[in-house]
Amino acid sequence: MSSSPVRRAPGGPVLQDAVTAAIATAMFEELAAVGYGKLSIEAVAKRAGAGKAAVYRRWPSKQAMVLDLVTQVAVSSADTPDTGTLRGDVLAYLSGTAAALNHPLASRIVPDLLAEGSRNPEMAATLLTQVGGTRRQKVAAILRRAIERGELPADTDIELGLDFLAGPLYWRIGVLHDPMDPVRIERLTDKIICAIAAAPGSGD
């Protein structure tokens, strides 16, 4: 008998966390290997050593499975621990995000999902709100803490600042395929802070 923790789906059977974790790992590996278009529930189940029914008990479709699991990982990777300074917070965020984008699976999955979103409006909308929107809300804490500390003006443009935090890093890693060594991340941190502090404020 397995000693793995179990949970019950609403109105459904008990779901073993170990099986869910195996399916999640298999989904990311399969998605990175074949892309969203060729991804199938059957292949994910086989890679996880589970039956298709185990997948369908957790998610009603391939799209639901992918969006749920991707959202969980993307949002958790946007955690912003308070280091005590704006520079420390920005550096921690950029370093963590760079590590996530440079992961062998993420480096193949992220561009594929963005491309799929251009063909699938429902997926694009979900990625924008559940992933992009939630991540931006969490990362905004970096700038709000800096305002509270007096490191940034009270009227700092939060939305523009979030663009500065996300855009340059993704451009270098996602588009130019530059892994961004620690020295470059340090330099980018200082440039971003200067840009945010210098940008005309328009409020929150």
Rank of each mutant, 00 (worst) to 15 (best):
Q16I: 05
Q16R: 14
D17G: 00
D17C: 09
D17E: 15
A18I: 04
A18F: 08
V19D: 14
V19E: 09
V19P: 04
V19T: 15
A21Q: 15
A22C: 06
A22W: 01
A24V: 07
T25D: 08
T25A: 02
T25M: 01
A26E: 08
M27S: 10
F28H: 14
E29M: 01
E29W: 02
E30C: 13
E30Y: 07
E30M: 05
V34Y: 01
V34K: 12
Y36K: 00
Y36S: 02
Y36I: 02
Y36W: 02
K38E: 14
K38A: 14
K38T: 10
L39A: 04
S40T: 14
I41G: 00
E42M: 01
A43K: 03
A43Y: 04
V44W: 09
A45C: 03
K46S: 03
K46L: 01
R47F: 02
G49M: 07
A50Y: 07
G51D: 15
A53N: 08
A53M: 06
V55M: 14
V55H: 13
Y56D: 06
Y56Q: 12
R57D: 11
R58H: 00
R58S: 08
W59C: 00
P60R: 12
S61L: 13
K62Q: 11
A64P: 00
A64D: 12
A64H: 15
A64K: 13
M65C: 03
V66Q: 11
L67K: 14
L67T: 14
D68C: 09
D68M: 12
D68Q: 13
D68I: 08
L69Q: 12
V70S: 03
Q72P: 00
Q72M: 03
Q72A: 09
V73K: 10
V73Q: 06
V73C: 04
A74R: 00
A74M: 05
A74P: 01
A74W: 07
V75N: 06
S76Q: 13
S76F: 11
T80V: 15
T80I: 15
P81Y: 06
P81F: 12
